[in-house]
Simulated scan of single mutants.
Amino acid sequence: MSKITVVTSASHFSKLLSSSSYTIVDFYADWCGPCKQIAPVFAALADKESKPGKIQFCKVDVDSQQEIAQKYGVSAMPTFLVLKSSSVVESIRGANPSALKAAVNKAVTDAARGPAASAAAFKSKGYTLGSATTPSRPVNQGAFAGVSNMLSGNGGLADVLVRFVGLYVISLFAFDSFKAAEESTFNIRAGR
C-alpha cells in the first residue's frame, strides 16, 4: 500500500496540511517524462519516511489542481515542496533525486527533534532592543538607545564605516589590493 496521498481538491489539501508537521508535495503532470522518472524515488522515500502526524507525502496533479499549483507558484514539473504547516521551507525544481532526498532527510530530522528541541535552543535570557544592554555597556534608556550605543565607543557604526571606506579606497588604487588591505591601518586584524 502506498503512503502517498493524491490530492483531490484545494480543501482536501488544506486538511492534509493541518494534519502533519511536514508535508512533502510532488507537483506533477501525467504527460511529464521527468515526473515519471523520479516517481519511484518519491514513492520509496514516502514508504520509508512517512510518520503519521509528523511527515506525510502527497501528489498534486497540476492539470487537475491548477488552483493549488498557482497558489504555490509551480511553473515547472516536477516541483517538490517541503511544507511546514502551510509554509514552504524548501523547493526543488526538476527531477533531482539527491536534492529531494536531502530535503526529505532534513525535514525528517527536524520532525524527529520535535517542538521541545526548538524551545531548548532558545534558553538564554535574551535582551530587548533599546532598553537592555550587553554586560560590557551601560544601560542607555530612551527611544534611540540602540543607535547611540552603536555610534559611540569602540566598534560603533562610525568606526565600521570609516574602516570600510578606508579599506575600499586603499584596495581600489593598489596593484595588489589584497596585500594593501591586509597592511592597511584600517584593517581590524592588523590591530592598528
Rank of each mutant, 00 (worst) to 15 (best):
S2Y: 05
K3R: 13
K3T: 01
V7M: 08
S11M: 07
S19N: 01
S20P: 05
S21G: 10
V25M: 04
C35M: 02
Q37E: 13
I38G: 10
P40A: 03
V41I: 11
V41C: 08
F42V: 07
L45M: 02
L45T: 06
A46K: 02
A46F: 06
S50A: 05
P52L: 03
P52S: 01
K54P: 02
F57W: 04
V60Y: 08
V62M: 00
V62A: 00
Q66I: 10
I68S: 04
Y72H: 03
G73D: 01
S75F: 10
S75W: 11
M77K: 04
M77D: 08
T79S: 00
V82I: 09
E90W: 01
S91A: 02
L100S: 00
K101C: 11
D110H: 10
A116I: 12
K123S: 15
S124H: 15
L129F: 15
L129V: 14
P135C: 01
S136C: 06
R137Q: 13
P138L: 09
F144R: 09
V147L: 15
V147H: 13
S148Q: 15
A158H: 05
G166W: 07
L172S: 13
F175R: 14
A180C: 07
A181R: 10
E183I: 00
S184M: 08
S184L: 09
T185K: 14
T185V: 12
G191W: 03
